[in-house]
Computed example of a mutant assay.
Amino acid sequence: MDKLKQGIEQMQNHNYEEAAKLFTEAIDEEPKNPVGYINFGNLLTHMNDYERAERFFTRALEIDEEAGTAYYGLGNVYYEQEKYTKAQEQFLLAIKKGLDEADVHFMLGMTFIHQEYVKLALPYLLRASELSPKDVDIQFQYGLCLAQNGQIEQAEQVMNHVLQLEEQHSDAHYNLGVVALHKENAKKALDHFTKALEVNPEHMLAAHAKGQVEQALNE
């Protein structure tokens, strides 16, 4: 197995020092291969060393300006530092260079969410959800974005899908409770808020909503 693959394995097993050593050796052996720099950049991002990570991704792009994963890596560096506009530019470049994967569409969607451009986020979260139908986080954020765009029926379908993937998803239950209230079904809403609190007793929004629904039903 080559050093890059070994390095990725070590990284996945949280052996960061060993991963760094292998990536360094891979770069020394093939200094004109952008993949070594990209992997090292990913490792540094993971370790919150954003300044050095940025340098490694930039170096990869100097070698190959078509390397979509390097733009994606740079996007993550900026995203983690809450520089959402800069992150957005890099994720768009990654897609333009042919990176059509769930993660890049998801991250691009999330940059818009953080800037409160929920309409602009929707097509990217939709694409991510199509590419990764079993990813709970992606499906949940897509459902939430649908709700924020007023597409309540579709949001309900997606939140139910989230519960099929993860039965104990308190936020999905909470949001389905909100949808039920929107449809004036207080009993169903109460069921969802109760379930949200069974899963996560600290869920303040669900606790507040449950209290209000109970009060309304008792009046």
Rank of each mutant, 00 (worst) to 15 (best):
K5I: 13
K5M: 13
Q6C: 07
E9F: 14
Y16E: 02
L22M: 12
F23M: 00
D28P: 08
E29W: 10
E30W: 08
G36M: 04
G36D: 08
Y37T: 05
N39A: 11
N39T: 09
F40A: 13
L43W: 08
R55S: 15
R59D: 07
E65V: 09
E65Y: 13
E65G: 13
E65P: 10
E66C: 12
A67D: 08
G68I: 10
T69N: 14
L74M: 06
G75T: 05
N76R: 10
E80C: 08
Q81W: 02
K86F: 09
D100W: 04
T111W: 03
E116G: 07
L120Y: 14
A121D: 07
L122M: 11
A128T: 02
L131E: 08
P133Q: 02
K134P: 00
D135Q: 03
I138H: 01
F140K: 01
G143K: 04
Q157I: 11
N160A: 01
V162Q: 00
Q164G: 09
L165W: 08
E166F: 05
N175G: 01
A180Y: 00
K183A: 11
K188C: 02
A189V: 01
L190T: 05
H192P: 04
H192R: 03
K195M: 13
E202L: 07
G211M: 13
V213P: 00
